[in-house]
Design a protein around this nucleic acid. Structure first.
Lengths: 201, 201
DNA sequence: AAGTAGACTTACTCGGAAGTAAGATTAATA
DNA sequence: TATTAATCTTACTTCCGAGTAAGTCTACTT
């Protein structure tokens, strides 16, 4: 299907050059057609970009969700989800760049699409964190605010670790996820257990 | 000083609109002068942008470093550094947007400047993490690779938590830093102590 | 008063890229 | 072989914004 081919090409060019530096002619060339065809199928550059973001975002969320979707313990599901995330980034770097390394400066539509992509991932993670806490049998010490905090930190850490992964290509995605789990989950569990760090007076 | 005023104005406009959408005329207007003056003082739009990034970056690194610079225990220094970081972001949001929310798609010079800014912060953090580990008296279980990993995750988490902070304006910067310390530091300490999470076989 | 230097502005040029009008090519029918 | 419809391209137009040439204003010197 033509539209798919165009989006494929656009994804590569956008990821490499960024929205502004990307030139529609180049996308058309890469797709093996001429510029007006791009406009015929996708309408505008902005719309083309949104189509790319949407596809990449759905692919990522789907990968995470499928990996994390089982009847097992939340922490195991979270680990699987994170592994899938790192695997996705390693394999389809263009999609990741698309979602991560784009200035949210752009138009309304683009900003909204990117925000929604992040929101989707965040919801998945927050959900698992919440279940993990509930299951831990803790006395509800942590509320929704704390769940959001942990989820936000976790997602941010994962984002950033994609850079680390690039510098350590020998490390398999699920090993990276394991490292992260050890950093976050144990700390969270112990905090739930009442352990705390605080600055000395 | 004229140059300073121009950079002030540019920072606001760049932060609000992003590099491409920012128009030099608007910057000039905001600075209360005309466009050619901007070019007289700063040479080019790109150079102007770099000047903004550099200033913001230096301010941030300085804030972190000064806060973290004491003879105390590494974890305390880290906490202070993180507190300063969150305070900086809360107070000078434009600078933060400048450093964080810009597409690295731009020109060589801009990309380099942004990378260097991040690199500076990362070095500071990694340094404290390393000291913290050494001091923990652990049997060198963790090498340089792990230090980098922790630093990368920590910086990423902090980056991302700036969003969380925006949604919870009542939470003071040092409280946010404390939350983060509890998530990360305790986990790290326990992992050093041999505790580990691993997926069941 | 006349000259001159520095600070500043108006009013352009010029290039680059999004978007499009009009025509060409191909393939399928009759 | 002529017709027509779908697909695609060439060759524009148009606009926007970075960068600049040339001139103006102010203040100070002589």
């Amino acid at each position: 299907m033509r539209e798919r081919e165009i989006v494929d090409a656009a994804l590569r060019v956008f990821a490499q050059r960024g929205y502004h530096a990307a030139v529609v002619d180049e996308i058309a060339d890469l797709a093996g057609i001429s510029k007006p065809m791009v406009y015929l199928y996708l309408g505008s550059k902005e719309n083309l970009f949104v189509a790319c973001v949407r596809r990449s975002s759905q692919a990522l969320v789907r990968a995470f969700r499928e990996a994390a979707d089982s009847g097992d313990a939340p922490e195991l599901r979270l680990w699987r989800g994170l592994s899938a995330f790192f695997a996705f980034v390693a394999e389809d770097r263009d999609s990741w760049v698309m979602l991560h390394r784009q200035a949210p400066e752009q138009s309304e539509a683009i900003t909204a699409e990117l925000a929604q992509a992040r929101e989707s991932v965040m919801r998945e993670v927050a959900d698992l964190v919440r279940r993990g806490i509930d299951e831990g049998g803790a006395d509800d010490r942590l509320g929704e605010v704390d769940v959001d905090f942990v989820a936000q930190a976790l997602v941010g850490a994962a984002d950033s670790l994609t850079d680390w992964m690039e510098q350590h290509p020998r490390e398999a995605p699920d090993r990276v996820a394991l490292r992260l789990m050890n950093m976050i989950w144990i700390g969270m569990r112990d905090v739930l257990g009442g352990e705390m760090w605080s600055p000395p007076e």
